[in-house]
Amino acid sequence: MIRLIVLRLLAAVPVMLVVATFVFLLLRLSPGDPALVVAGEQATPEQVEQIRRDLGLDRSLPVQYVTWLSQMAQGNFGASTLSGQPVLDLIADRVEPTLVLALVTIVVTVVIAVPLGAIAAWHHDGWRDRMVMTLAVVGFSVPSFVIGYTLMQLLALKANLLPVQGYISPFDDPLQSLKHLVLPAATLAIVFMALISRVTRASTLEILGEDFIRTARAKGGNENRILWKHALPNAAVPVVTVIGLGIASLISGVVVTESVFNIPGLGRLTIDAILGRDYPVVQGLILVFSLTYVFINLLIDITYLIVDPRIRY
């Protein structure tokens, strides 16, 4: 296990290097001059040139690349070209809302979607199955901003049950924080519930046809025991995969929801950085998101080891 973790972390180094290079080239080759943005509209050409020199943008690409890499290797992600704050500080400030939102969403999703999927598989082709699958199709096809605005309209504006927008840290005021989280979490969760319940259903359905299910029945096990103790644990591997990837894409993909609900998380930071051509921040964000993916994939692999003893690396 420890061997696995060390090996996987080592394997992450070249992955991150490729990502870093790709990000570097992508931003340098895209149109738009950050020096112009920083200098503002009234700046003289000399001022712009000065800023360009300060930012190191006048040097050749390979030189910029090497400088940039060596700084990164020392943990220096640079400073925002807009605010001048260190990139890492900026990101650290915005991590909490995104992380809290992602965790709440995934917990809600798993708690609801996995049992739904299992029950649908159990009542295969029955009305419960059709209902769950219909909901899954709807949940999957409606864009999240539509769901977001609809929920906001109904529950916040009309019924006045929940706050419309904003974010409050659970460390400051747990109850208010939860109230603020309900709408965005529900918005995000609906899509993932659709996905995870479908995967759980398919996986469980396959397992229910296995010989050991018949064995369990021949032992005199009742149907509850068969579904929850024998079928579901065996169906876990694909479900774990989807949940893991769900978490990763939640952390890096909450842009729309954070905008709709005005949450100061990483998604908002990403949008602001891209619009402001804030290269260092965009680079930092993409690297953080990639690292999240690598880390979560490692977590998925470790979880495999726990849920299925047959798996060895």
Binding site: D211, R214, T215, P309
Partner: peptide
């Protein structure tokens, strides 16, 4: 089938 009659994760 002794290979499939037992639950593999138990």
């Amino acid at each position: 089938e002794p290979l499939t009659a037992l639950n593999p994760v138990m």
